[in-house]
């Protein structure tokens, strides 16, 4: 037997032993966070403010303010912003349609499953799919030209441009919106709509005063997520355009590969700039959401 004795010894020593046990379990997680999230980030922040000799400098930051780099940031922000806002709006419309539009039940789970797939169908294969669809020889391009007589390339469209990339990014942005906003829309109680109706409100008034204000923090949170998602994306852009499109991720990628900017400090500053912009998007979200969520616990 001997078990009761053992249990007793465990019980008596449990108070001092409990703490190392817990710490031990959390240790790998903390170690991981430090090694692969905090240290690399701090190293870049540090690198952005040091020169080759290791002294403090603001030259790297100042070096960001060239036409090429500013243009790269700006086009990245525009693509991310456009794909996030359009993705959020379209995703919201689709989610509302499948959840509150009285469409058949099966449709909803089909859309949710597909969204899970499409939100992860990013990167290189997505670029291939859009080249096959809207490239110069893509199926949609050719059908539009031969059947409808619309030559989209002659009328200014280019897959390897701002709108081309935005349209491509929407393929993972919309499903991501659907997946993250669906629980929030499920949380809108049917009774709120009914209560508003008995009080004389039209459908529009319900959404204007009740439905949308309740969803707003969730929409905003997803918006900042979508923005960061597009802002850091490179694989799709790279596979679509090679190094042709001057967006900030492509610039940094080239810098990492071959020191294109001739200055590692400048590379670190470029990375720091990216972190600042995505963090800013999150801070804006947190501030606005905190104001919009006064009514929440």
């Amino acid at each position: 037997m001997g078990q009761p004795a053992q249990r007793q010894s465990m019980a008596s020593s449990s108070t001092p032993r409990r703490i190392p046990w817990d710490a031990l379990a959390v240790f790998p997680f903390i170690l991981f966070a430090v090694m692969f999230l905090f240290l690399p980030t701090f190293s870049l922040i540090g690198g952005a403010f040091t020169d080759r000799a290791g002294n403090f400098t603001l030259d790297n930051i100042a070096g960001l303010f060239t036409d090429q780099i500013m243009a790269a940031y700006w086009i990245s922000i525009r693509i991310s912003g456009a794909s996030a806002i359009l993705g959020a709006l379209i995703g919201l419309a689709i989610t509302l349609a499948i959840i509150r539009g009285k469409l058949p039940q099966g449709l909803r789970s089909a859309v949710m499953t597909f969204s899970g797939v499409a939100s992860n169908f990013a990167g290189v294969p997505l670029a291939f799919a859009f080249i096959a669809t809207l490239g110069r020889l893509g199926l949609a391009t050719i059908i539009l030209k031969t059947v409808f007589g619309i030559d989209i390339y002659r009328s200014g469209f280019n897959l390897f441009s701002f709108w081309g990339l935005t349209l491509t990014y929407l393929y993972f942005q919309i499903p991501l919106m659907v997946l993250t906003i669906a629980p929030a829309i499920d949380g809108l109680k049917k009774e709120w709509n009914e209560a508003a109706q008995t009080l004389g409100a039209s459908t529009w008034q319900f959404w204007r005063y009740i439905g949308f204000p309740i969803l707003w923090p969730s929409v905003l949170g997803t918006l900042s997520l979508l923005f960061a998602n597009a802002f850091g994306a490179i694989a799709t852009a790279w596979a679509l355009t090679g190094s042709n499109l001057n967006i900030v991720t492509v610039l940094l990628y080239n810098q990492i590969r071959g020191d294109a900017l001739q200055n590692p400090g400048l590379g670190a500053a470029l990375a720091l700039g990216m972190i600042v912009i995505t963090s800013l998007a999150n801070v804006i979200y947190l501030v606005v959401a905190a104001r919009a969520e006064r009514w929440m616990k």
Binding site: K189, E191, W192, E194, A195, A196, Q197, T198, L199, G200, A201, S202, Y209, I210, P213, I214, W295, M296
Partner: peptide, 22 residues
Amino acid sequence: LKPNQRKLGMVFQAYALFPNLT
């Protein structure tokens, strides 16, 4: 008539107060 044209008042089982309004 639609519900919003009937001029009735209704109280629901689960309160159904609008959470975003005071």
